[in-house]
Amino acid sequence: MLEHKNIFTVIFLTTLITALIIYTYIKFFRIKEVDFEPFYVMIFVIAGALLTNYLHLFTSLNSVLAAALVGTIASFSTSLNKKSKILQSVPNAMYCGCFVGMSQKHLAIDYSFIVISGTIASIFYMFSKNLFHGVGGKLGTLAFGSVVISSLLLLILS
């Protein structure tokens, strides 16, 4: 019983801190409107997570090299058609997914965890298009938040 109270305390405090950070950021930088990424970026975030996780688990590459390989290949997609808005959004979205796919083997038990974390990360990514400009580590922070939320959901539901 005590364990469940601790989980809800962690969830409450995490939500409160996140809300305060976003509120402070919006007020400090005086953001007038919030712009969103298109819906199709979800596919690229999830694909980046799955590819990185697959390379990490089933090849001799460690998680950093797997993410670097997927990110490097994704970066060349912009040169296929420089006028395509879809291809211009591939590198950042896939690299955000790469951070999700770098999850350790004992945390990401199967691909469903990666898909759920990737979906949450893609939702965060879509809503943060014009937020956190000039702040380093945006993609990694979004991925970290999605993995933490997925882990908490897994802990609560199991």
Rank of each mutant, 00 (worst) to 15 (best):
V70G: 04
I43N: 09
S89E: 09
I26Q: 04
F127L: 14
K83R: 11
V148W: 10
L131I: 06
L142C: 09
N130C: 03
H56P: 01
A74F: 01
F76K: 06
V34S: 13
S79M: 13
P91I: 08
E3H: 12
I31C: 02
V115W: 02
C96L: 08
I123D: 14
L153R: 01
F39S: 12
L69V: 15
T14N: 08
T78N: 13
K129D: 03
I11R: 04
M126L: 14
H133L: 12
L61P: 11
I22S: 14
L69W: 00
L142H: 10
S128N: 05
N62Y: 00
V34E: 13
F36N: 13
A47K: 08
G134F: 05
G145Q: 12
V147H: 06
F124K: 10
L155M: 02
G140H: 06
S128W: 04
V64P: 00
S151M: 06
D110L: 00
L16D: 14
S63Q: 14
L154A: 14
N81H: 06
T59S: 05
I7P: 10
R30A: 10
L50C: 11
L2F: 15
K85A: 11
I46K: 03
F99E: 03
I156T: 15
L107A: 01
I11Y: 03
G145C: 13
F58N: 14
M102R: 02
V135L: 02
S122P: 03
F58V: 05
I114P: 03
S151R: 06
L16E: 09
Y95M: 13
L80T: 07
A121S: 11
V41I: 12
S151I: 07
G48T: 04
I43M: 11
I22Q: 12
M102H: 07
F58W: 13
S77T: 15
V70A: 01
K32S: 15
S117P: 06
A108E: 00
Q104F: 14
F127R: 11
L20N: 09
S150W: 00
P91F: 00
G140C: 01
Q104W: 12
G101S: 03
F99C: 01
K82V: 08
S63E: 15
K85T: 12
Q104N: 14
I114N: 02
Y40D: 03
T78G: 13
V45S: 09
T141F: 11
F132A: 05
L65A: 07
L16H: 01
E37M: 15
A74N: 07
Q88H: 11
K138V: 07
Y54M: 11
A47R: 07
V135P: 00
L13V: 08
F124D: 13
G97D: 07
